[in-house]
Amino acid sequence: MQAILSSGMLFTGAIIFLLLLLTISMFRILREYERGVIFFLGRFEKVKGPGLIIVIPMIQQMVRVDLRTVVMDVPSQDVISRDNVSVRVNAVIYFRVIDPQKAIINVENFLQATSQLAQTTLRSVLGQHELDEMLANRDVLNVDIQEILDSRTDGWGIKVSNVEIKHVDLNETMIRAIARQAEAERTRRAKVIHASGEMEASDKLVEAAAKLAEEPNAILLRYLQTLTEIASEKNSTILFPMPIELLANLMPNKTKKAEDKTKHDNNG
């Protein structure tokens, strides 16, 4: 009799223990950034959370979904640009789940699916642009990739908020070619600037010559100023050109006598 009672008590205790475990397992706590997708006998029922929720064991199942922004690194991709340059490009994307129901039901693994889609989109978009555009217009390319990813992941309940291209790696040959191109461009700019300076200087010289031609003594003042500047350098020998017109201005009496003698000889 005692054996039967003891076995009955053990059985009752086991039942109570199992019921206690089932009762405890019914209660789930979801954090503020978590949601629970509830399935009732395999069918979608609702999205619960955050806080304390009740899930009936063996009848209901719950799948946790994190709503925080996910930072995903896109591995380096081999891209051939529109001008047939081979580069390796990697990027980072920022996205989050905005519809837990679609993220669980419409796609098997939304993280892996988003990663693969980002890799293929990165190659296809960058392949439509030239190398110079990849290097100079990253902001425009980031926006294009973000818009494409956002539209394609909308059916998965995912919002792509930002895409950033991190590195565009070139081989050594292409780096040297770009360096030569930059050097040639700078040489071209230097020649254009020098030519523009020569043109402006020639215009100013023409204006100065016109001003000096108005007053003959002005050129004499310029020569004297130049002599003063040369003398200040303490040179032992100075070679200075002296035009005939200047000599005529310096010796007006001799010139006048020569002209009078010439007239006299002609009259004689």
Rank of each mutant, 00 (worst) to 15 (best):
H167Y: 15
A258N: 09
M174E: 15
D66N: 14
A201R: 15
D83H: 05
V70I: 13
I4D: 10
V163R: 06
I193H: 11
L221H: 10
I15C: 07
M251L: 14
V168Y: 06
F17W: 13
I244Y: 06
A213S: 15
L227C: 07
S161M: 10
K254F: 12
L131A: 01
G49C: 08
L250Y: 03
L239I: 13
V63P: 00
D73T: 03
A184H: 06
T153F: 05
T187H: 13
I230K: 11
K102E: 05
T12K: 05
T237Q: 13
M72P: 01
F27H: 03
D265T: 03
N137W: 03
D99W: 10
D150V: 00
P243C: 04
I193C: 00
P57N: 09
L21T: 04
P252Y: 08
S115I: 00
L126H: 01
S25H: 10
D150L: 00
L41C: 01
V107N: 09
V47T: 12
K263V: 11
S81Q: 09
I145S: 08
L135H: 04
I105A: 07
H167V: 06
Q128W: 02
I148T: 05
E130R: 06
A113Y: 12
E245P: 00
L212P: 05
T255R: 15
Q116C: 00
A190Q: 15
P75F: 03
P252Q: 06
L5V: 05
D144Q: 15
S81I: 10
E164W: 01
L122D: 03
M62G: 06
V79L: 01
V85M: 10
N217H: 13
V168G: 03
K102N: 07
Q225F: 09
M174G: 00
G42K: 06
E164Q: 09
P75V: 02
V97L: 05
M1F: 07
D132R: 09
A103F: 11
D66W: 03
E45D: 12
P100Y: 07
I105Y: 08
K211H: 13
R82M: 10
Y33Q: 03
N249E: 14
W156R: 00
D144W: 08
E147Q: 15
F40Q: 11
A14E: 04
E147L: 14
A190I: 04
L126V: 01
I165F: 07
P241L: 09
M9Q: 11
P75Q: 08
E214D: 12
R188N: 08
K211S: 13
E198V: 12
I29M: 12
S25K: 13
L67E: 04
A209V: 09
K166Q: 11
I15H: 00
R189M: 09
I178N: 06
A190S: 11
P252N: 07
I104W: 04
R82G: 00
G49Y: 08
F17D: 02
D150Q: 04
V160R: 00
K204N: 08
I53D: 08
L170E: 10
T153L: 15
A182W: 05
S115Q: 14
D154L: 12
I54C: 07
D83R: 03
N162I: 01
T114S: 15
V74M: 05
M134A: 02
D139E: 06
R152I: 01
N171G: 15
R123D: 04
L52G: 01
I29T: 09
I105Q: 09
A177N: 11
T237A: 10
A14Y: 12
N106H: 14
E34H: 05
I59K: 03
P50R: 02
L18H: 05
G36P: 08
